[in-house]
Design a protein around this nucleic acid. Structure first.
Lengths: 173, 173
DNA sequence: GCTGTTATGTATAGTCTATAACAGTTATAA
DNA sequence: TTATAACTGTTATAGACTATACATAACAGC
């Protein structure tokens, strides 16, 4: 598939028909037909995912957190005492790529690397106080704006069914 | 969220317990808890999307087509006589990025740019004969392997419901 | 012709993903 | 004990994807 977040589809000019699109006579500037494409799950999945991430970023904008960063903070909160490799693996982040990500979070004082005394190779990851505060705010924003909007659009039952199916695909496909 | 395709989670060694993971006494190398994360739609969506794309690539590997390229071929087949901008916009591809993509397809003789006689700025896009052949094979592979596997996993009714919800999100979120 | 707009293309930057390799540390086996 | 293997965090680097600014040619309207 393809799918970025761009492409305004038609740009919908409010002013008088500048040049084309009058839908008059010979001009058939009709919208394109997706055809089969609209039946392909991968296509719909990708477009939906982009929308969701876009909305997530808007909702959490005051905290300047990406979905990835949010997922790291959530995981650190739920799993104290784990090292970089464990956190990265769980989230499907490659360890080399996790380094820069942690640098970012640590430089903002949201989490800290602590050398393990048992295994001096490891960095135990821990949320800082500020990290916990930010995470708490993020949780509220996500619940009140992001997930609430989804519930509104789909209804709680459908939302749950959707989540279940996506989880099934992620686990067993 | 995060989520790449890597991270084997545990690597599941078949041989005898090499070092850890004996689940014996003090060693509690338990799997991490996703916690809240598993309730966030965006996270599940991203992981599912990666799985689906991964499987798509496997299924269509003999034809060397990415999901994005497949979507372009499908759209060209369904909408003959359109130019680059129209196709790119419909798929959410930015025009500058569509150039290299078309170069790739054209160099493989799957589609052709034809200068429009009406508007000599435009390139009308058309599938070549080879493009049609490849697309036909891709359709069969996708239907027989990729979508069939999804149907098997979810069941036709659930698959349809999933598609409908994703489409709703993509359109109205 | 002149002005403004459109279609394509180039250049470029930023992000995300992926692999190889290294140093320091720990575990395993001879 | 000592040599070897494995593991952790890290750097370097490459590729793919996304995004913006700009240039050029062509068109539309005056």
């Amino acid at each position: 598939m393809t799918v970025s977040k761009a492409a305004p589809v038609s740009a919908a000019k409010a002013s008088r028909p500048a040049r084309k699109e009058p839908a008059d006579a010979a001009t058939e500037a009709t919208a394109l037909q997706l055809g089969e494409l609209s039946e392909h799950l991968g296509y719909a999945l990708k477009r939906a995912q982009l929308k969701i991430f876009e909305d997530f970023l808007r909702c959490v904008a005051p905290l300047q957190l990406t979905p990835a960063q949010f997922s790291v903070l959530l995981l650190l909160d739920k799993n104290p005492g784990r090292n970089q490799t464990e956190i990265a693996n769980t989230l499907g982040i490659l360890r080399p790529n996790f380094v820069a990500m942690l640098d970012g979070l640590e430089s903002r004082d949201l989490c800290a690397r602590i050398r393990s005394t048992n295994d001096r190779r490891s960095h135990i990851l821990a949320l800082t106080d500020k990290g916990r505060t930010v995470l708490a705010r993020a949780r509220k924003l996500v619940a009140a704006k992001h997930e609430a909007r989804l519930n509104e659009l789909l209804g709680p039952a459908n939302r749950a069914a959707l989540l279940a199916m996506l989880t099934t695909i992620a686990k067993e496909f």
